[in-house]
Design a protein around this nucleic acid. Structure first.
Lengths: 256, 256
DNA sequence: ATTTAACCTTGATCTATATCAATGTCTACT
DNA sequence: AGTAGACATTGATATAGATCAAGGTTAAAT
């Protein structure tokens, strides 16, 4: 469903960037060939904040996380990436990367140099649109995430996170009901803005309530409905009450 | 400094989109003419979530806020806009707007239709770059905001917010030390993810500590250093301690 | 095969900030 | 010029979730 992603495939013509990677030959059906296909090991870095922006990447297999670092030294994970996701869009801003990318497991990426990309954008309306679409999608994703940070309690945020992962795996033709987390509890806690102990406790709780099953990094969703419903329950923060439903019309008579 | 903004001006050749708005004539010095220049009153809506994506806009004067709404009905303000800012980038994702835009005061915008925009992007490398740059900038801004939500306490978030406004006003040639808030306390609270009472209390507190002066919507920054310093103080959340500085080497001897 | 370090879980306690409540002030409409 | 509704402030109290503490489990390294 996600426009920012594609079905993972070794074949370039399934790729969001196909037109470009093929090299603009006349024969669109030409043998698909990757521009550059590189493999990284777990905890390797693709690029770091401050590094010159030279290319964008498409994750072909594995997973990764992006993070930024504050002056104070604290780090914030801003996204997790799965096959088909575009990486490196942060670099267009000022010519150097704002984020750092670290792989969560053995992974491979396809590299698209900036020159190549610009040529493709000049020539192809569809590549142009795909780029804008991807960036817009990333922006909207972040907005929704922001909403969840400000308007949901910890349990809801964690539930949201699991459902989001689930649907992303499903988009990729994998099971949305049983999957492995490639990130640690520390990563999850950092991303969702809570303490690692809270993540742990909530997972145990959801497990006990038979909403999910957790066995180490393996998560199974047992009761998707229940998980989704708990996200809709209003946290009802005071700050949102521009107009509070008035119940003051009903008079409470206390019988002693 | 912000690449997402320009010096506000009535003249198009100061505008980030100049090449496009001039209409690609030979004479680049031709009389600047706006494509479309529309005025809105306070609390008017530019577009709403769900509406078909037809154009992007540049705010020429005034200010606005964007917000998204959750299924549960709760609303989250995702940005505030000031003159020179691009509005509507959320629409590229799936052809309809994800956000709603509401003006905070009498404002005017310049409208750039999608067809026009695409033509300009096909022809001009610089317009192409400006678009990618703006979106990337918005993305990075959101990441930084996310970091502040997850790693700062309420006082720090509010301080951050005020300093951010200050520098945006300065970028526009206005005073960064004395300015008027065009948004309500409710807006600020919603944006920063805190209760309106907390916003109010913190403003009063900063006022009492002579860091700022608050008189209704008018804010004056009295001690910028102090304000900046408090943002660097680590909140030191447990969740961040992958490796805690070990002080266990020093032995504390208690003298009774 | 034992050590070390990373990762995770669970319980007890503390605190920042939400929530509840009441009042004050400004703005715009009749 | 008075009234209603939006906006803002301040104090008292409650609580979600952070922090502190301890122990357990796993995986890699010697």
């Amino acid at each position: 469903m996600s426009l920012n992603t594609i079905q993972p495939s070794v074949l370039c013509h399934h790729c969001v960037m196909s037109g470009m990677c093929f090299g603009q030959t006349d024969k669109k059906q030409a043998e698909p060939r990757l521009r550059s296909h590189k493999v990284f090991q777990k905890s390797n870095v693709l690029f770091s904040a401050g590094q010159t922006f030279e290319a964008i990447y498409i994750l072909r297999s594995g997973s990764a996380k992006s993070s930024i670092t504050a002056n104070s030294g604290s780090e914030q994970i801003s996204s997790f990436y799965f096959p088909g996701d575009l990486i490196g869009l942060d670099g267009f801003d000022n010519g150097e990367h704002a984020q750092s990318i670290r792989f969560l497991e053995t992974s491979s990426v396809c590299r698209i140099g900036l020159g190549e990309l610009d040529k493709a954008m000049a020539n192809s309306t569809s590549i142009r649109h795909k780029m804008l679409q991807s960036m817009s999608h990333a922006l909207n994703d972040e907005d929704r995430f922001l909403l969840s940070l400000n308007h949901m309690n910890s349990a809801q945020r964690l539930g949201s996170f699991l459902l989001n992962l689930s649907s992303r795996f499903e988009d990729r033709g994998l099971s949305g009901n049983v999957f492995d987390l490639s990130m640690t509890r520390v990563d999850i806690a950092n991303y969702l803005g809570m303490a690692i102990e809270t993540v742990s406790r909530l997972l145990t709780q959801l497990h006990n309530e038979k909403v999910i099953e957790v066995e180490k990094r393996r998560v199974s969703i047992l009761d998707r409905d229940k998980l989704q419903q708990c996200l809709l329950l209003e946290r009802e923060p005071h700050m949102l009450f521009a107009e509070k439903v008035r119940q003051s019309n009903s008079i409470q008579v206390e019988v002693a």
